[in-house]
Amino acid sequence: MGEYRLSDRGVYYTITQNRYKCNDCDRSFASQPLVSQHYRFVHLKKRPRERKCPKCDEKIPGYLRAFHLENKHGIPAPSCGACGKKFRYPSHVLQHQKKVHMGERNCLCNVCNKTFFDKLSLRLHMATHSTEKKFGCKVCGRCFRWENNLKDHVKIHVGDKRFVCKVCEKAFVQKSTLKQHTVRNHPGVDVF
């Protein structure tokens, strides 16, 4: 329950309710290594270290190693025998197969008895049973239950209006607002 420092950049995360919240963008993570990785990659712009390929002199980030070995050297990337999806590590293939193809669900919700593959999925689901709105807008103070709803809302304040009416060219922050506008002002016109 406190703040921790990262070298000369100062405080970069806060621990609240067993979550590690980035102080620069308010994203939260399940562990300290995850918030640290996020901070390094996103805010400090320090990308993963590149390492030399064991077969050639090309330097590649670790997450692309399996794909590089397959594309450049013909060494197959670990893949799912059922659907052909490719992965970075063989352990990811097994996890994928348990979750997608075998439908393994060992984490039980004590409220509604619904089951989930992992604790992360269960934790995300638990928010559906709560009325707590823990994601607050720093501009106007409006609060939301889901982080994605807050992200959409913030677009209002920054003027991110990417949904444009085909008829009158009026722009909107949300697709639903454009649809509402079209129904009211241009009946019979296809929105998209």
Rank of each mutant, 00 (worst) to 15 (best):
Q17W: 04
Q17K: 14
N18G: 01
Y20H: 05
Y20A: 00
C22D: 05
D26I: 07
R27E: 07
S28R: 04
S28G: 10
S28F: 02
F29M: 02
S31I: 01
Q32V: 14
P33R: 02
Q37G: 05
H38V: 02
H38R: 08
Y39I: 09
F41P: 03
V42E: 14
H43L: 06
K45V: 12
K46D: 14
R47C: 11
R47M: 15
R47G: 12
P48A: 13
R49S: 09
E50N: 09
C53R: 01
P54S: 06
P54I: 07
C56Y: 00
C56E: 02
E58N: 15
L64W: 07
H68D: 03
G74D: 01
G74C: 02
G74N: 06
P76K: 02
P76M: 03
P78H: 02
S79L: 08
S79G: 05
C80L: 06
C80R: 01
C80T: 06
C83L: 09
G84V: 11
G84W: 07
K85G: 00
F87C: 05
R88F: 01
Y89I: 05
P90M: 07
S91T: 14
H92N: 04
H92I: 06
H92C: 04
H92M: 04
V93R: 02
L94K: 13
Q95L: 13
Q95D: 13
K99A: 15
V100S: 10
G103S: 05
G103I: 05
G103C: 00
R105H: 07
N106G: 12
N106R: 12
C107N: 14
L108W: 04
L108K: 15
K114S: 12
T115C: 12
F116D: 03
L120T: 12
L120R: 10
S121K: 04
R123N: 15
H125M: 06
H125V: 08
T128P: 08
H129C: 11
S130L: 11
E132R: 13
E132L: 10
E132H: 03
K133Q: 15
K133T: 15
C137T: 13
K138Y: 11
G141A: 15
G141R: 14
